[in-house]
């Protein structure tokens, strides 16, 4: 009898535990309600809508896999997807490497650090639309200052926002300005690297590259990992900058020959301009799966991330 009652008791909570459980659940109930109503239920609904034809006015009609089949043959969709992948595969590494480089430079004990920090940070908190308008003016083909400066060096004007071969480069370039907050994230990480480790390496005769490669980078690798994950998700959702810089008065967007039509922009057009809610839901689900795969790949290949055990 006693042998039976032991495992049974293990799964039973004591009175205090049960009270703690109830109190805990009460405190986190806003999160649970939010999770259910604003996340889990909509995800299920979204999956359902993706198998339907739904224009809001009439009830959704089940059409099976048709939306997904049509998406695969939708040239604009494939273009939007490839444009977005270019931003993730090219734009994101440029962005993070630039920020990491700047953080290293700022970490070399230069004077006036707080001023530099402020300057690099401020663009990332300005309203996106306001800043995008400034950049439209900088990028202006005829009167924009960028082409004027190029002209001083005898370089022909560039169609920053009008040339399909240039527009993504322009957006990536502009993105560096918007993303300066990552510099501060890296800088904070670099300042946390224990100096005694670097001093020890110096005594062993390590050169600058060896110190960076074997101490500094491993120590901030969790932060790099975090910024990669967060930015992959962000870049897949790239919307406002692209929308504001390319939207026309008539409500179209995407730039010349849809060269700057990104995934979320096309999704927005389908959902809120053409009210193809089923079609857009299928797009949303494909995005969900792609982001999930990308995140899993990053997690799986995260062997380079070093978690320093705290003493």
């Amino acid at each position: 009898m006693a042998t039976i009652s032991i495992p049974k008791r293990r799964f039973e909570f004591t009175r205090t535990q049960r009270r703690a459980l109830i109190t805990g659940l009460v405190f986190i109930s806003p999160a649970l309600i939010g999770l259910a109503f604003f996340t889990i239920w909509p995800i299920i609904q979204s999956a359902y809508y993706s198998f339907t034809n739904y224009d809001i006015l009439r009830p959704p009609r089940w059409i099976g896999l048709q939306n997904y089949e049509r998406l695969l043959n939708d040239r604009v969709f494939v273009l939007a997807l490839s444009n977005t992948l270019i931003m993730v595969v090219v734009g994101l590494p440029i962005h993070l490497l630039f920020d990491l480089g700047m953080a290293f430079l700022l970490n070399s004990k230069i004077r006036g650090l707080s001023i530099y920090r402020t300057i690099f940070y401020i663009p990332s908190i300005t309203p996106v639309v306001a800043s995008a308008i400034v950049w439209m003016w900088l990028f202006n083909g005829q009167y924009g200052i960028l082409n004027v400066i190029l002209g001083w060096f005898g370089i022909a004007p560039i169609g920053w926002l009008t040339d399909p071969n240039w527009i993504k480069t322009s957006l990536i370039f502009m993105g560096l300005w918007f993303g300066g907050n990552t510099i501060l994230v890296y800088l904070a990480g670099l300042q946390e690297v224990p100096t005694h480790l670097i001093e020890a390496a110096e005594l062993d005769g390590a050169n600058a590259w060896q110190k960076t490669r074997n101490i500094t980078l491993p120590m901030i690798s969790p932060i790099i990992f975090y910024t990669i994950i967060i930015n992959i998700i962000g870049y897949f959702q790239y919307f406002t900058e692209g929308w504001v810089l390319t939207a026309t008065r008539e409500g179209a967007a995407g730039g010349p020959a849809n060269s700057a039509l990104f995934y979320s922009m096309y999704l927005y057009q389908n959902a809120f301009q053409q009210f193809k809610m089923g079609y857009a839901s299928a797009q949303a689900w494909i995005l969900f799966v792609i982001v999930l795969i990308a995140t899993v790949i990053v997690f799986r290949t995260s062997g380079w991330v070093y978690y320093h055990a705290e003493e």
Binding site: I233, F272, S281, F288
Partner: peptide, 16 residues
């Protein structure tokens, strides 16, 4: 759930 792209919940929430 931070990692969930907002687009997935956007349409159902709008409809609700």
């Amino acid at each position: 759930t931070i990692m969930l792209p907002a687009q997935v919940t956007l349409i159902p929430l709008y409809i609700t």
